[in-house]
Nucleic acid binder design. Structure first.
Lengths: 137, 137
DNA sequence: TTACATTTGCATCAATGTTGCATTTGAAAA
DNA sequence: TTTTCAAATGCAACATTGATGCAAATGTAA
């Protein structure tokens, strides 16, 4: 599905900033930070415009935030767009990348009585396949 | 273990700000936000002092950050201080509290070849036992 | 092409992260 | 207890980021 089709589906106007953000995220191999998106985005948008476009896309659940910690926040297309299952994310300390681990499904945890789960986030941290090979540290 | 003993164990000077922060976190039932800690802290410290004390305690792994999302960040004593096992955290959308779910242990996930896990964070979101009872929304 | 609601860019303000530096303080040595 | 010095504090200052109001520009449907 193309960026403008996604916008149309959510009844959002097709603006170049929104379209560009979606395009950059779609093109990225891994989840990507706000600054990386801004750098790769064509056109020089005011930071408020970028901020509001971003917010709109999040609110409409087109893009999804993956919070590794408050220093490392990355974005990917929402599962509803990619049609992926709920899955864990992997953060690599070496290359700082965040990858979707589609093979690691998240099971509904067994909660104490009275607790109701509606959402689960799981971030696994360590060294990824690629970085393991390279260098000693 | 008392706040000043924890500081001593980590070779940190016993200052009232550090001691106070630890005391407030120890006294709290749940994980607690930076602002809540600041409010409950006796004495009026400069925000830089507070910021640096906080940073020091984090760096020495005395306190531990639980990042629900970038809007909701709470702190608790680190597992090495409380002697708890690695466990999941529960975030309640209604009361905004973060509770340790000691009963929900986190198993080492089965990762794709070459991936090495050193740390795992799991945040379960929903409605907690207490809030389930109260009101319809 | 027109018309209007939405979006943009800019100004602005608040909150927060961070650093440098002179002064104060904790704790170890005398 | 007093002295001593590295470490911590308070303050000023600056950068970054979240957020809002408003006039001008833009997207889209009539």
């Amino acid at each position: 599905m193309k960026p403008y089709e996604i916008l149309a589906k959510h009844n959002l106007k097709r603006t170049s900033c929104r379209e560009g953000i979606i395009a950059v995220i779609m093109a990225a191999q891994h989840a990507i930070s706000e600054n990386e998106i801004r750098e790769q985005l064509e056109g020089n948008y005011d930071r408020t415009t970028f901020y509001r476009s971003f917010k709109t896309l999040e609110e409409h659940k087109i893009i999804h935030k993956i919070v590794v910690d408050n220093q490392v926040i990355k974005y990917a297309l929402d599962n509803s767009v990619t049609l992926k299952n709920e899955h864990a994310h992997f953060y690599c300390f070496k290359c700082n990348s965040v990858q979707c681990l589609e093979s690691v499904h998240i099971e509904k945890p067994l909660l104490p009585d009275g607790y109701v789960c509606t959402e689960t986030e799981m971030v696994i941290k360590g060294i990824c396949n690629f970085c393991k090979e390279s260098g000693s540290k």
